[in-house]
Design a binder for these strands. Structure first.
Lengths: 128, 128
DNA sequence: CTATGTGCAAAGTGTTTGCAAATTT
DNA sequence: AAATTTGCAAACACTTTGCACATAG
């Protein structure tokens, strides 16, 4: 299937690139509506799937909702159990993963997803 | 709220303890029906929530479905992208996580969830 | 021109809930 | 006896889809 460059898809992608808040489809829908008032939620979902297939965004599993992230390099996440914010965590200096034991058992590791949870710096200082 | 020991809850818990397949609520429902034919799916969901609240089981986020696990000690998971099986991975000798950088930024880490994905040993050998 | 994408509304999927009857303590 | 739990069905929240029209290439 050969893809077209639609205005809707461009706007959705740009909105996602402009935030680091790991938004839900619905949040994105509300934002896009400010630019394209008559866009439909179905179009947002369809384009998020396309962007994901093209590797331009990733999808995060957060409970029953999906969240989306235009940052596609390998990084981890921290979810605050108080304010529910999701933070990006650079992999450097945080996690040292040794998958040799898995390899020896015959498992090929392609991806490592890590989610930390706890209380974020904002909530710890009591500003939330 | 003070809890009662119902037959339904006991059966659900024992079924979950008897598998390491990280089943969905629906899979558990089908299994419980073999013992309690007229149990309802709502009861399964309610009891899974209770068991989770009591810390007897944990809930895993796997796409849009929840999966459940009676193993509550700290361990990680491997999901095969071919057969969709989910394996338990002992934390020892696999991952060395250093959260001091997070602590210094004011984040309190309470939990670390890690999911590896790739091809499992069974699929790699071509038996699936 | 034609295949791809859109808006809309309806349908789908997994989970939760209100209620009257049943059960545990 | 009193409070919790159950079965049932309806309601829910999020996501997907069928269709006729619109649009990009």
């Amino acid at each position: 299937m050969q893809r077209r460059n639609t205005y809707q898809r461009t706007v959705i992608y740009e909105i996602l690139r402009g935030t680091d808040s790991h938004p839900t489809a619905d949040w994105i829908y509300e934002k896009v509506k400010q630019v394209i008032p008559n866009i439909s939620l179905g179009t947002v979902y369809r384009n998020l799937r396309v962007l994901k297939e093209e590797g331009l965004i990733i999808e995060l599993n957060d409970g029953k909702q999906s969240r989306f992230d235009a940052r596609t390099d390998n990084h981890y996440h921290f979810k605050c159990t108080n304010c529910e914010r999701i933070y990006d965590i650079d992999k450097e200096n945080v996690v040292d993963v040794d998958v040799s034991a898995l390899k020896q058992s015959g498992f090929s590791v392609e991806k490592i997803d890590i989610t930390f949870s706890g209380i974020c710096n904002i909530c710890n200082v009591g500003e939330n």
